[in-house]
Write a protein that binds this DNA or RNA. Structure first.
Lengths: 333, 333
DNA sequence: CTGTTAGCGCTTTCAC
DNA sequence: GTGAAAGCGCTAACAG
């Protein structure tokens, strides 16, 4: 209508001299339209560059062929996952809609429920929740959780073996001769963080090493929240010779803080992370870490969600293995 | 209504014993609601866990406080950009919606117009187009293009200095003593690709080196499309001693292909890329490349778009500098 | 085969 | 201060 406004189904109908219902049928390939009418309408659509509004369509039909990926923010973990889902959605006929609030993540528990409420019932046919903190029993649409930050729930879930990974990380440091091993944890309310701390403690006690509670800090998984705890950890009179940080971001922050404190990594301090996000290879020195197959987790999440949508029966829980990736941030004592 | 269905404004209204109009006013903080009514409605909202549907709301009000980021697919470049936008959207009151089709990117010219049509006018208040191939004059909402694949257009644009970067890359190889320098380009229809090729040719001729057209191939910017051309390039009788690939993904592919052909990098072949995506540090050997400040481009795009939405007058074109990042994939001859 | 009608969930006049 | 009613762009019966 307006020169710059978007063209609606009404514009197409008027131009083609038919009703909007007929245009709708053409768009959706419904039966009951004469071939001549069909091609005339199609022509007008092309000519006007009409594209149906996702919003209006979904409000009405509750089917959109769009999969939602809900994340707290776009950081290395969620974007890696995105790459995996993007790859595996190809050819399925679905499109991807990644949604993230603007709020400070972490402080904002319950974001997943809010986002889902805003989008579901309309707009998306299914959702992948990335590291949700709270997972309710039922949403209106099929939902898959990736690495949920809470204990076992009814939700179909993709995660990786956090406990084993943490054991591997800690044991690696022990094998290198370290005895004073600090732990920069995630958040006590998050399942993955608890499992990683559990793995750390398990490996320590298995090796007959006592955990000095002063050397266990809460890093919060984010650079900003890890700065202070890392500084405290490295300023201890009984300074640890190695630190296992619960994720790569905080491990990298630990390296930064060490530098500020005049400590060289790995000469004065060994640091190991968890996740193996691409950034871990970029740090100086390159970070030794525990790899989660993050992109693969995205692929699995997509596969599971599609199966759910299509009513395929299958195991709703996929756990992927972790592996040690040795780079340059650890050294033997 | 239904036990599992999502709760609508009607449910809230019924439960609170008011009309939907009143609930709407409460939600949007409009004037003209008694304090008592306000708090009663608010209570019901909390109790029912009601969250207004983005779709229905936007269909009606044409204002959503959501910024759209439209990408062809979630690959290293677009996800890096996402990180930057995510960071800079914090505290602005906007939320982010990244949209990507399922189709094979690259083959699908014009995706940006389609996506924008589907989302604009509703759902998003403004859009950031990542490496769009076609940029029309006018869309219904403020739009910023990042690294558009087409020549100068009327669109506000963020890009980096592709030409200078390509000159730097090529000169680096020349300085290292290389004379037979192959170029694995992007796509002829993409502006950045043309500029990078232009920079390559400029640096070559400036150094008095002739470009052997056989050593210039189209790599298409993607791993799959680069495989064959890379193989051809490295199988030439007059094999280049160095290859400048137009982006990191195809540079990494070149390294892979070299390995398959029994060539060692950098001993037998030097490779330099462009972009400095995190993946470039992960390749073996780590890739020497030209860094674009991708996350910063996201930050700038967000800032420019917000200014556009708020009617702030400013220069609608931001060009960011590139820089050489030396790692291990090049050696002196 | 085609058009009319009734909403989807919400916001927004405009009466009351 | 509150609610009834219209309508955003579209799809889905149902008539004609």
């Amino acid at each position: 209508m307006q020169p710059t406004g978007r063209v609606t189904i009404g514009d197409v109908a008027r131009t083609a001299g038919v009703s909007v219902a007929t245009v709708s049928k053409v768009i959706n390939g419904r039966y009951g339209v004469a071939a001549a009418t069909f091609s005339r309408v199609q022509e007008v659509i092309d000519q006007l560059g009409y594209e149906s509004s996702l919003v209006a369509r979904s409000l009405r039909s509750h089917r959109t062929n769009v999969i939602g990926i809900l994340v707290a923010e776009f950081e290395p973990f969620s974007t890696e996952l995105l790459k995996g889902t993007s790859r595996s959605v190809q050819g399925t006929g679905y499109e991807l809609l990644a949604y993230s609030g603007g709020g400070r993540a972490g402080s904002d528990v319950g974001w997943e429920r809010r986002y889902l409420s805003r989008l579901s019932g309309t707009l998306i046919d299914g959702a992948i929740l990335v590291t949700p903190t709270v997972v309710d029993a039922q949403y209106g649409i099929p939902v898959v959780a990736v690495d949920p930050h809470t204990g076992p729930s009814g939700l179909p879930t993709i995660d990786s073996d956090n406990f084993s990974g943490a054991v591997t990380a800690t044991r690696h440091l022990i094998d290198l001769g370290h005895r004073q091993i600090g732990f920069l944890g995630g958040r006590p309310d998050l399942e993955s963080a608890r499992l990683r701390e559990g793995g750390y403690r398990h490996a320590m006690s298995t090796a007959g090493l006592a955990v000095d509670e002063d050397q266990v800090r809460i890093g919060g998984y984010r650079q900003v929240t890890a700065q202070e705890p890392a500084r405290e950890l490295l300023s201890l009179p009984e300074r640890p010779t190695a630190v296992f940080a619960a994720n790569d971001l905080t491990a990298i922050q630990t390296i930064t803080v060490a530098g500020e404190l005049g400590l060289r990594v790995p000469e004065d301090l060994s640091v190991i992370g968890f996740d193996n996000v691409p950034e871990s290879a970029l740090s100086v020195p390159a970070l030794t870490t525990i790899a989660q197959p993050i992109q693969q987790m995205g692929v699995e999440a997509m596969g599971l969600l599609l199966d759910l949508i299509n009513g395929v029966e299958r195991d709703p829980h996929v756990r992927l293995p972790t592996a040690l990736v040795e780079r340059s941030s650890c050294r033997a004592l």
